[in-house]
């Protein structure tokens, strides 16, 4: 069986340190839009890093769920990046971020309806056809739900997989955040999801924010993975599969690289402890 892979989000704060392959990290993931200019310094560093480290490309701006047509210029830049760095995974989000040509640069929530599913299927097909490869679609973190949503998110994703052949990127922090904010059963989420389609796992930190008499969890990616998310990760590994490549994300308020390496080691530690349990 192939060894499980552990990755880290490559951010410019760490790029120079990651130029040499002396960290125990199996792969690095970049936000696609940060590398759309092949003449930038960041791109230059990425090319050097890609000489020794596998790369995955994670898009945040394609706005697949928008009712606007797909931005062809954006797709072309994404394809140029993919063709140049040859990532082993390319992913995007179950979200939208633009309407009537105005971009909001956030992962905005979609209503889970047949109309939205048909649109999203069409967009994923279009993107996969243009890119000539499979996309993974990541579950979002949510702070609201729509009246008209009547398909559960895992079922929506399952139907998307079935119709397009795309894969899934399961963000366990997002499952926890949405579960808390919208009172979902997070374990039932896993049971409903087509786990065979999951090709990558994300883990990140959230920020609790008190609003009125409630605490809302914000998917902030600026701190360590919370204990509750580690527990959910452990549950997923134990009850479903422990072979899916797992990546730590950290997008602002950057600590020393060693802090992120420790987070990767925490994920490894959980998997190791589960292996020992299963061997005992």
């Amino acid at each position: 069986m192939m060894k499980k892979q552990y990755g880290l989000g490559l951010r410019s704060a760490y790029a120079e340190q990651l130029l040499s392959k002396n960290q125990d990290i199996d792969w690095l993931e970049v936000h696609a839009e940060n590398y759309f200019n092949p003449h930038s310094y960041d791109y230059h560093l990425l090319k050097r890093i890609a000489e020794h480290s596998p790369i995955s490309v994670h898009g945040v701006g394609l706005s697949l769920g928008s009712t606007d047509p797909l931005n062809q210029h954006h797709l072309e830049k994404l394809k140029a990046l993919i063709d140049d760095v040859n990532p082993f995974i390319v992913s995007e989000h179950l979200s939208w971020s633009s309407v009537n040509g105005r971009y909001y640069n956030d992962l905005l929530p979609l209503p889970y309806t047949e109309e939205c599913l048909a649109l999203f299927i069409s967009r994923v097909n279009q993107a996969q056809d243009f890119l000539g490869r499979q996309l993974l679609i990541e579950n979002p973190s949510a702070y609201l739900a729509y009246h008209e949503s009547h398909i559960h998110e895992p079922e929506f994703l399952n139907q998307l997989v079935q119709a397009t052949g795309c894969g899934l990127l399961l963000d366990i922090n997002n499952v926890y955040v949405s579960g808390h904010n919208l009172a979902w059963d997070t374990k039932a989420y896993f049971e409903q999801l087509n786990i065979n389609a999951v090709k990558e796992i994300h883990l990140a930190g959230f920020t609790p924010k008190v609003i009125g008499d409630r605490t809302v969890l914000i998917d902030s990616h600026n701190q360590k993975v919370h204990q509750e998310v580690w527990q959910l990760y452990r549950y997923f590994q134990l009850h479903f599969t422990n072979t899916i490549p797992t990546l730590i994300e950290w997008d602002s308020d950057f600590p020393e690289l060693s802090v992120l390496i420790n987070e990767v080691n925490s994920a490894k530690g959980i998997d190791q402890s589960l292996s020992e349990v299963s061997c005992a």
Partner: peptide, 27 residues
């Protein structure tokens, strides 16, 4: 359009607005 939630519609939208303004302000 929003389903009943512990947060008001205004509070929910405020979170997305904060994210949107923050990401462009950082740029």
């Amino acid at each position: 359009d929003l389903a009943a939630n512990a947060l008001s519609a205004e509070e929910s939208i405020q979170i997305y607005q904060n994210n949107y303004v923050l990401s462009l302000s950082e740029a």
